[in-house]
Nucleic acid binder design. Structure first.
Length: 479
RNA sequence: GCCGGUGUAGCUCAGUUGGUUAGAGCGCCUGACUGUGGAUCAGGAGGUCCCCGGUUCGAGUCCGGGCACCGGUACCA
């Protein structure tokens, strides 16, 4: 026995077999269509980047970054990208002649060397769209409008895009008397609101607590009076954008800079109103924070109301300083990112994508070696008519195994053609779904054989037309 | 990172106070049924009992260490 290698994948990595790939491709194509309609252009960048590009020049400043490092023959310091935003910033800085605004979309895998978790992998796909070099609030507006249009195109059922802004949160800090240096810590805790609830957030903002596993959660040591103000802020309802803005104006009446920020948010909200994105779809919800430190303006995220357990499936915001690390110059940008894997899980959960495994709609079986020219001819006849067709290329002789093969791959139709059919100038077409349904009711094999459910014989010349008709009928039945 | 749990066939798992040649269901393959998927029946293939060490006449079983995975929790640019 030769020594064999155990087939396996490293932790957090997985294969996507055809059913998952077909569902994913449909989803990505649907999203892409929306963003090309909006006039965003595609971009591809290498999976591997220089480590200093990924980390920023002051390496070590953000320690504990879960970057996969990569070796090349030149021994350069390289790593796999962990998002698509940093490579975008690099591209914008590197291609100085690129006309701006640069509005691009990119769908590609990214890698993070984190501990894998349910629904979290070390290799996963993001679908990002960003407008770089834009200050106008219309850019923020179109990102959020695009989020809505995308979710509608994916038929996810009711959803809610919620947005707020770093400016509002900064006003909150001023309002509560918290120094701006603490902003990252405070926002990180506020971001957990959906997940852990207000009571734990309060504890984490003040004294900290010991969680269920006995792990201590350190508190931020804020005063109770400060947290009271935060809570008062968080209670501002998110049902009506105009009303929320009114309340914010009242709450922040004495806070410097708040009025300007609220005016910006109002312009976005008004654009959205005038385009028909009403409060049911887009809400101004000051309880969302988003953990990322680099956001500087509006932040937004989307949840599916029929699948809330999947959390935010689509999120983003404005980040006006990210390109600075490469150019030293401030370039405003706004964008959003879709967690393709998470959204796909939600779509599967909602039954929006099927479990299709095969691209072929017809399997042409081969029963008689003497008739191979006929099988080949039929196959290409179907293909040239635009019907995805597979010719059985395995070694099984009889139709039993070949039908089993069609069944295993979920091919909806099978063609049976032997000397019987040839003599009479006909071809047998079998509807696999009809047969499968009938089989459930039949216990006796002989009946099953005699009945040949879902089969029909048609003249050889009607092959393409009949296949087309049967597929159309199946398509309707399947809906 | 921390707490707890679990590692036995492709999958889900059983395996007695430590005792001969380690089992079941599902799946897979073959046949009954040489032109029909499902069901049924018969047969077959498939094992480093996670790894290393220890105790013992004897270890899947007990002990020590390691690793992996699962659940919870934290972190997540």
């Amino acid at each position: 026995m030769p020594e064999t290698v155990e087939p396996r994948t490293s932790r957090g990595l997985r294969d996507l077999l055809s059913d998952q790939m077909l569902a994913r491709q449909w989803m990505i194509e649907t999203i892409r269509n929306v963003y090309e309609l909006y006039g965003f252009v595609p971009l591809s960048t290498p999976a591997i980047e220089f480590l200093d590009v990924l980390r920023g020049s002051e390496a070590g400043q953000e320690a504990q970054q879960s970057i996969f490092t990569v070796q090349n023959p030149e021994n350069e310091a390289l790593g796999l990208r962990f998002d698509l935003t940093v490579p975008l910033a690099r591209v914008v800085a590197q291609y100085r002649e690129l006309p701006r605004p640069f509005r691009r979309y990119q769908v590609a895998p990214v890698w993070r060397a984190d501990k894998p978790d349910k629904g979290r992998f070390r290799e996963f796909t993001q679908f990002d769209l960003d407008s770089v070099g834009v200050e106008s609030e219309i850019a923020d507006t179109e990102i959020m409008a695009g989020m809505c249009d995308t979710l509608r195109a994916l038929k996810v059922g009711p959803f809610r895009v919620r947005f707020s802004s770093r400016g509002i949160l900064n006003a909150l800090l001023a309002f509560a008397g918290i120094p701006q240096e603490r902003s990252a810590d405070v926002f990180r805790v506020l971001d957990k609101l959906d997940k852990v609830g207000p009571a734990k957030v309060r504890l984490e903002l003040t004294t900290g607590y010991v969680d269920a596993s006995g792990d201590p959660i350190r508190g931020l040591g804020l005063e109770n009076a400060q947290v009271d103000k935060i809570e008062r802020f968080l209670q501002i309802p998110a049902t009506d954008r105009r009303a929320t803005l009114d309340e914010l104006r009242a709450t922040f009446s004495g806070v410097e800079g708040a009025a300007d920020e609220l005016a910006k948010i109002e312009r976005i909200s008004n654009h959205l109103y005038s385009l028909g994105y009403a409060d049911a779809e887009v809400s101004l919800d000051v309880s969302i924070a988003r953990g990322l430190a680099y956001y500087t303006g509006p932040v937004f995220e989307a949840n599916l109301l029929d699948a809330p357990q999947f959390g935010s499936v689509f999120g983003g915001g404005r980040y006006d300083e990210l390109v600075m690390r490469f150019l030293g110059e401030k370039i405003p940008a706004v964008g959003a990112s879709i967690g393709v894997d998470r959204l796909l899980s939600a779509l599967v959960h909602l039954g929006r994508v099927g479990a299709q495994k095969s691209t072929a709609k017809v399997l042409i079986s081969r029963m008689d070696p003497a008739l191979e020219p006929d099988y080949v001819a039929m196959t290409w006849e179907l293909r040239r008519a635009g019907i995805p067709a597979e010719l059985y290329l395995g070694t099984a002789k009889g139709p039993g195994k070949q039908l089993k093969y069609a069944d295993a791959w979920g091919v909806p139709l099978a063609v049976l053609y032997g000397s019987n059919e040839k003599e009479r100038g006909v071809v047998t077409l079998k509807d696999m779904d009809a047969g499968r349904r009938r089989a459930e009711a039949l216990a006796n094999r002989q009946e099953w054989l005699d009945e040949r459910p879902g089969q029909r014989e048609v003249p050889r010349g009607d092959l393409v037309a009949t296949v087309r008709e049967m597929l159309a009928a199946q398509g309707e039945a399947g809906r």
